[in-house]
Design a protein around this nucleic acid. Structure first.
Length: 423
DNA sequence: GGTAACGGTGTGAAGATTAGAATGA
DNA sequence: CTCATTCTAATCTTCACACCGTTAC
């Protein structure tokens, strides 16, 4: 409280320090200071007896329920049939502070309007619905919970009765607070803790823990949502935030590539060696079938049904958004270009010559940090050299705008004579 | 011919702060 | 009854953006 005594109204901590430095230099600069802040300086407020407070006197603070009571009184006046004040007894809680003194005018409000607190039976039934909700269903039927749960948590205040609100608070503390609030707060806090490059690109560890682990529904916190959030969370971190924050369109593209969506790790999470071995086996089988330059494209197309099966294992969220690709057209257009993944020839020599092996290779490269390190460096450099000042693109326009007549900051039409003279 | 850019001011939203009221020990 | 803490409405500050006419691009 000492700070409030010294510096006055708000924003004031650094404002006070600034003024203090100024006041040591000269009083002229202080008087020329045109800050709209009424807090003034410490010397002015403390030394001068004639200090005039420019602050508006604080209006009397309304007591709890007073606003509501006033509105209720108005409603009962306007619509006495709907908002009758005769039917129910008063629930006004006689606070000792209210009974002390200047409460006489508001007492009438309390007496009248508190009767209006409970004519809304609908709210009672809604609170009854709340009682039907059991906390155990959070683990068993998460979807039901998410639907039933949000409404009461959003606006417990809609149920204006103090009695009901007390019950609601219990419910909110038990259910929302323990379950959903923890979930939201922690996950969002995790996002905010991420800094810089991680907030844009997401880290490799993060990708694994959030999205890939998300598929195994046993010990996964997200699995309680029926698998709806599994893959989207990882993408949201790595992809959407990158789109929001990054303006260098190149470097986030690579890691945010739909590896998360199309990587087999997203489903089974095999050990890297296992995945490579499995990929090699698949490659052998497919090499038996086709041995043409376009083999990779076809193999990729062969992978598609598998990937579709992968997505089928997950509840179909956005089946309406699935792209319908012209696979034949893509195959034809790529048939003479070789592998879309990189160096022709050299890549085909690698073991595991198919999409799975290549994707796992990309993933390893990513985790080993070479490319990530470069991206981090580029990001830091860009952040260091960022310009926050406005950049004038056309100096001529600035000159013209400076010469242009204004009215309250807005450009106004130039008088005919001066415009002719200008031309 | 169309459009973006130019700068000072007004305005509303959002956040920060204060202080009075409520509450519990 | 007192005191400390919490809650919350009121107030203040900061920031972003629209607005305007002209004109270079």
């Amino acid at each position: 409280m000492s700070s409030s005594c010294l510096s006055g109204a708000g924003g004031r901590t650094y404002g006070f320090e600034f003024e203090f430095v100024k006041s040591t230099s000269s009083s002229i600069t202080r008087t020329s200071h045109t800050s709209s802040s009424p807090s003034s300086t410490i010397s002015e407020s403390s030394n001068s007896q004639l200090a005039i407070s420019t602050r508006k006197p604080r209006t009397a603070r309304k007591r709890p329920n007073q606003t509501y009571n006033e509105a209720a009184a108005l409603l009962s006046t306007a619509y006495p049939n709907l908002f009758s004040s005769n039917t129910l007894k008063s629930f006004a809680k006689p606070s000792p502070q209210y009974s002390n003194g200047n409460i006489s005018n508001t007492a009438s409000f309390l007496d009248d309007s508190s009767d209006l607190l409970l004519p809304f039976r609908v709210f009672d039934t809604s609170s009854f619905l709340l009682h039907q909700y059991k906390p155990s269903c959070f683990a068993v039927e998460p979807k039901v919970v998410s639907v039933q749960h949000e409404k009461p948590c959003q606006s417990p205040g809609e149920i204006s009765s103090r009695v009901n609100s007390l019950e609601l608070e219990d419910h909110n503390n038990n259910h929302c607070g323990a379950g959903e609030d923890d979930f939201d707060a922690e996950s969002m806090l995790d996002e905010e803790i991420e800094e810089g490059i991680d907030s844009i690109m997401g880290s490799g560890v993060e990708l694994e823990s959030s999205s890939i682990d998300g598929a195994s529904s046993d010990n996964n916190p997200w699995s309680c949502f029926g698998g709806k959030l599994d893959f989207r969370l990882g993408l949201r971190r790595a992809g959407v935030r990158a789109l929001r924050s990054a303006d260098d369109g190149n470097w986030w593209n690579f890691p945010a590539v739909d590896i998360l969506q199309i990587s087999p790790k997203a489903v089974n999470k095999p050990a890297p060696q296992q995945s490579v071995a499995a990929a090699a086996e698949k490659a052998k089988k497919k090499k038996k079938k086709v041995e043409k330059p376009s083999v990779e494209v076809k193999n990729k197309n062969d992978e598609l049904p598998k990937l579709n099966n992968i997505h089928a294992a997950v509840p179909k969220l956005n089946s309406g958004l699935m792209l319908k690709l012209n696979y034949d057209g893509v195959r034809n257009s790529w048939s003479d270009r070789g592998s879309p993944f990189g160096d022709d020839g050299s890549a085909s020599d690698l073991p595991g010559n198919d999409v799975t092996a290549r994707l796992s290779q990309i993933d390893l490269l990513w985790e080993n940090g070479g490319m990530r390190e470069a991206s981090v460096l580029r990001y830091k450099e860009k952040r260091r050299t960022r310009l926050f000042s406005k950049k004038i693109r056309y100096q001529v326009r600035k000159v013209n705008a400076d010469r242009r007549p204004r009215m309250q900051g807005r450009f106004v039409r130039r008088p005919i004579s001066s415009s002719n003279a200008h031309r």
